[in-house]
Design a protein around this nucleic acid. Structure first.
Lengths: 248, 248
DNA sequence: CACTAAAGTTAGTGGCGACTAAACTTTGAT
DNA sequence: ATCAAAGTTTAGTCGCCACTAACTTTAGTG
């Protein structure tokens, strides 16, 4: 089928394979195991396609598959997934910081480039950026040797009225959401307080700087935060700005 | 990959298709028509594979194929080829100028990225570079609307002893050659004079600045130049430096 | 505890893009 | 003018990665 396949040492991962491993990694860290249907939804393919690919990947040693029970990455699979994720997040950072992309437009671009960029390119970009630890959406960037700081965060929706928190992360996959967050100035690093909370999944009123935007519960669930000790604060500007700001 | 193919407006070009069109374009501008075998060599595939692809591309309107006679691009095919070439050359320029790549290492990287980068990314890079008209190897960059300044140049090998010329272009495909040219400081924009020429395809002695490197005939053939009017010059430094230097 | 809905798998198919082997031009040299 | 070599095409196959349809397993409910 392929002329130079006589003695290929490692058949490099194809683009679809990288996508599967990445999607499985993400589902696994969120839910423990990755279900066939969830992978299918994440990749917009039919469940049967997932079963087929999973069989091949299991046989190649990238994951363990217990039929009807879900899949889990092996070490090799996890390494490959983290490599792709590192590429993706460095690309997003570079596109935002250097090339002036808005944070809601980098996902698709990075999604395609992550399969084409060489290690050298990624590392040159990382160097140009000063080796950032988070991408523009606050997601931690895996290191070259495959370690990530995946701290579980709370969602904005879980906070109680009066609590203060720092926004730390949001998914990069929903442009509308990202545009709205940019509008209300809610970015990684931003300090936010819960002013009010309507009962039964009603909207939340936030304080961000001097503004008090209202957000729906669905949005609040998507936004990851890190609660802050309720520091005493004088009315007025939040003077104690964190320097952990990672956004551009 | 069939599900979202119901009513696709433009069946975007696949990566192999872009490669074929680009290769055919390059052969066509060099030799008038593109021969099956030459395309096969350029893409490192079997001749039979070329025939197969050519049939499909002809049927899709990207080229005209006269069996046993070679292929020629249609307008649609030429447009697609030039779009890919523009991407390639802007990427090479960006990698060299902004990310510090050596000019002999950009070809492969650009070759992969040209299929993945969006129009937006390419135009952002072009803007960051100030819309260059040539890539690092002196190749003209097609405009967005598909015009190129493909002037035919002479090769260094054609010059007579005593002639002076400005180096304008060299292929990006041979890293060793490029490294050697960098070593003897022969880049697009560089002024060069033929000091001596051994007969029967022997080596040429050049003057580049204050140095007099010798180059083989094969190399000399690869280097495109633009003869300069033999200006009067006093012995010593070439003081009349051109300001048309396009290299970084 | 049986039954059914949801989730997952198997079976069979199709397009793309490569391959080899073999047949068929076209060309160029005797 | 013939014929061999070079170039090109046809025929048949294969792997990847999708798909649909039909079947199996699991889990949840009455």
């Amino acid at each position: 089928m392929m002329s130079p396949d006589h003695a290929v040492p490692r058949p490099l991962l194809t683009e679809p394979v990288e996508d599967y491993l990445k999607a499985i990694y993400e589902l696994e860290t969120r839910h423990g195991v990755a279900a066939t249907t969830d992978v299918a939804i994440a990749l917009a393919v039919a469940p049967a396609s997932v079963t087929g690919m999973v069989r091949r990947l299991a046989q190649q040693g990238y994951l363990d598959h217990v039929p009807y029970r879900g899949v889990q990455l092996t070490d090799a699979g996890r390494r490959a997934a983290l490599r792709t994720i590192r590429r993706h997040r460095i690309l997003e950072s570079y596109l935002t910081s250097v090339l002036g992309y808005a944070w809601d437009r980098v996902h698709d671009e990075a999604e395609r480039l992550e399969h084409a960029a060489s290690d050298e390119l990624i590392e040159r970009m990382a160097t140009a950026l000063g080796h950032p630890s988070q991408d523009p959406h606050g997601a931690p960037i895996p290191t070259v040797d495959g370690t990530v700081d995946e701290r579980p965060h709370r969602s904005l929706a879980e906070l109680a009225v009066g609590e203060r928190a720092r926004m730390v992360q949001v998914s990069d996959k929903n442009p509308q959401l990202l545009r709205y967050l940019a509008e209300i100035a809610l970015q990684p690093g931003t300090e936010v307080m819960i002013v009010a909370k309507a009962p039964f999944g009603g909207p939340l009123t936030l304080r961000i700087g001097a503004n008090e935007p209202m957000v729906g519960p669905h949005l609040a669930e998507q936004v990851r935060v890190e609660p802050m000790p309720s520091a005493p604060r004088s009315l007025g500007h939040p003077i104690t700005r964190s320097r952990k700001s990672s956004s551009r």
